[in-house]
Simulated assay, not measured.
Amino acid sequence: MTRVTLRPVLEEDLTIFEEEFYGPEGVGPYQWFGHRATGRERRAFAETGLLRDDGGTLTVCSGGEVTGRVEWFKASWGRPLTSWCWEIAIGLRPSFQGRGIGTEAQRQLAAYLFEHTRAHRVQAFTDIGNHGEQRALEKAGFQREGVIREAQWRGGRWHDQVLYSLIRPGAGRTEP
């Protein structure tokens, strides 16, 4: 497999993202939620470079090419001050899917978040029918936790999602 790297988003990456991820052909059947404006992402890039305290976006590169992007944002399982975790997402350009790039990018993103934040948990979810992404998450070290029934509205109906998580390495659980 070609070497995979994550780096901050450059302005020229935004054009690739718009061309590849803003239509049903680019995002595929599991991520098409309808048309959306591109100006908001460009404004956020101008303001923050898409790197914020509550989440961010990095460009995925492989073989010297922009292959996609990874994102993270805060989610919580209780009070946000004490029970937050990172939730991650990935979008790969269709011509780069199925090569292990997504597996490595998600592994690197989780490692980055554990190294640079105090997060104890990183989680991701995917459509129950997206077997490629399920394999990628498992190969990246994520553990399947279960099915979240009818959690995502897409294409005129509700879809089940599969939840995965990765716990900070070396962290022990404490239970009463």
Rank of each mutant, 00 (worst) to 15 (best):
D127K: 06
R144C: 15
E65M: 11
A171T: 13
I88C: 02
N130M: 02
Y22D: 02
E12D: 14
E19R: 10
E150I: 11
F96I: 08
I101L: 08
E115W: 01
G98C: 14
F21H: 01
G146Y: 11
R118G: 13
A136Q: 01
L109K: 03
H116R: 07
F73S: 14
G91H: 13
W32P: 01
H131Y: 15
A46V: 05
G102E: 06
H120T: 10
W32K: 04
G170N: 07
I16V: 15
A37M: 07
Q143G: 04
R79A: 11
D54S: 14
G172F: 03
T126S: 10
R93W: 08
E150C: 14
I90L: 13
W77S: 15
P29Q: 13
N130V: 09
G129C: 14
V147G: 11
E11T: 01
T67R: 06
D13E: 02
G170Q: 09
E20M: 03
E150L: 14
G23V: 00
A136R: 03
I128E: 15
G146P: 12
R107Q: 07
V147A: 13
Q134L: 03
A119P: 08
A110S: 12
V66A: 04
E71A: 14
F21P: 00
A111C: 10
R40C: 00
G23H: 08
S95W: 15
R43V: 02
R121I: 13
E145S: 09
R121F: 01
S165A: 14
R69G: 04
R40P: 12
H116V: 02
R157T: 13
E145G: 05
L14D: 00
Q134N: 09
E47T: 10
F73Q: 06
V60R: 04
A75W: 07
H35P: 10
R157H: 13
R36A: 07
R7L: 05
L58N: 00
W158R: 11
F21M: 02
L50V: 06
V4W: 03
A89L: 08
R79Y: 14
A119Q: 05
A89N: 12
L81K: 05
C85V: 09
R157A: 11
G64P: 08
G129F: 08
G78K: 12
F142I: 05
M1R: 11
A46S: 13
R173Y: 10
V66D: 00
Y22P: 00
C61H: 05
A124C: 13
T15R: 09
S76R: 13
A124G: 11
D13R: 06
R43C: 04
L50T: 02
L81V: 06
V60Q: 00
Q97T: 15
A119N: 04
F125R: 09
I88L: 14
G129W: 09
I128Y: 12
L51I: 15
G55C: 10
R40D: 09
L113N: 01
H120L: 08
G23A: 10
L92E: 02
G78I: 11
E47N: 07
E47S: 13
D160L: 02
S95G: 12
L109T: 05
F17M: 05
E20P: 00
F125Y: 12
A37P: 07
